[in-house]
Simulated scan of single mutants.
Amino acid sequence: MTAPDRLKFTTIAHATHRYLSPLSPEKAAWLIDGLALREGAEVLDIGCGRAGFLLDLVERSAVSGLGVDLNTTFITSARAEAARRGVEARVRFVDQPLAKAVGDAARFDAIVCMGSSQAIGTFAEALRWAHAHLVPGGVALFADGFWRRRPDPGYLEALGGATEDEMTTHAGNTRVAREAGFRVLATACASDDEWDAYEGRYCAAIERYVDANPADPDAPAMAARIRAWHDAYVTWGRDTLGFGFYTLLKPASREP
């Protein structure tokens, strides 16, 4: 059995998600308010997916946004949703690599990166990139994984041969942000309920797809993958993998 196409799998698996991360609308609103953006601010969302968060931000604040994601299906959906919400004049979307979509000289008032650090490199590299592309006094909202406890070797294997040193702790993530030059304004973590909602939708979307499309040659591999993934989540992931949100400030002046 060959592995299912990664892009096809993730597109189907996230078909019913508002956000492509373990995040509730209530926490999203709190995070948006915490950015305290001025009117007319320009916001970059790295790996925006279907742009649920960016569109919430543009609706809630008088700002403009640029969403970048390689998934053309997600970008098409984001454009349609922007039009439905009536904010298409204040947001644009690009389905290109970040390096092509955003030039070296580009600067933003705010940068959002919700679990998409890999678009740049490591978490630390993504933070440094964001710091360089923010105006002084600009803000960033990063979300990234962390270990809630030491991962079981079986869980690391289930994650595709991950290693423990690929992530640190929640406190470790905040230290990495400070080392990149940011001041940490606030932090938060995904709750168990947010994780269950995210993983439940992820699993259900694939199971419903393979049930409705038994003739798809990818269906057996997709079914095997989602069942192994969900088993790893309930066995280890729910108690091991955390997801942190970090609201950060690029200082406008020297550190006191």
Rank of each mutant, 00 (worst) to 15 (best):
M1L: 00
M1N: 00
P4N: 00
P4R: 01
R6N: 11
A13C: 00
A13S: 12
H14F: 11
A15W: 04
A15F: 00
A15T: 09
T16S: 14
H17N: 04
L20V: 14
S21V: 14
S21Y: 05
S21H: 04
P22N: 10
P22I: 11
P22V: 11
A28F: 04
W30G: 10
L31T: 10
D33W: 07
L35P: 01
A36P: 01
L37M: 03
L37D: 03
R38Y: 04
E39P: 13
I46T: 03
C48S: 14
G49S: 08
G49C: 08
G52H: 01
L54S: 04
V58I: 13
E59Y: 02
R60V: 00
A62K: 13
V63E: 05
L66K: 05
D69V: 06
N71D: 05
T72I: 12
T73S: 12
T73W: 07
F74E: 10
R79I: 07
R79G: 14
A80D: 15
A82N: 06
R85D: 02
R85W: 01
R85L: 06
G86Y: 07
G86T: 05
G86D: 08
V91T: 09
R92P: 04
V94W: 09
L98E: 07
L98R: 07
G103Q: 10
A106P: 00
D109Q: 11
D109G: 13
D109N: 13
I111D: 07
V112K: 07
C113T: 11
M114P: 00
S116P: 05
S116Y: 03
A119R: 14
A119D: 13
A130V: 13
H131R: 08
A132N: 09
L134H: 06
V135L: 12
G137Q: 06
G137P: 05
V139D: 07
A140P: 05
F146L: 02
F146D: 02
R149A: 15
P151M: 05
P151N: 08
P153M: 06
A158R: 09
L159K: 13
G160K: 11
G160Y: 12
A162V: 01
T163A: 12
T163E: 13
D165M: 00
E166L: 14
A171C: 02
T174L: 15
R175W: 04
V176Y: 11
V176E: 15
R178M: 12
E179L: 11
A180D: 03
G181I: 04
F182S: 02
R183T: 07
R183Y: 01
V184W: 06
L185M: 12
L185P: 03
A186G: 11
T187H: 07
T187G: 03
C189A: 13
S191C: 11
D193P: 00
D196P: 06
D196Y: 05
Y198N: 02
E199H: 02
E199F: 09
R201I: 08
A204G: 01
I206D: 02
E207D: 13
D216E: 09
P217V: 04
D218T: 02
A219E: 07
P220M: 03
I226L: 07
R227Q: 14
A228G: 15
A232D: 09
V234F: 10
W236G: 02
G237A: 02
G237E: 03
R238T: 09
D239P: 02
L241S: 05
F245H: 14
Y246I: 07
L248G: 09
L248Q: 09
L249F: 05
L249A: 10
K250F: 03
P251L: 08
S253T: 14
E255I: 11
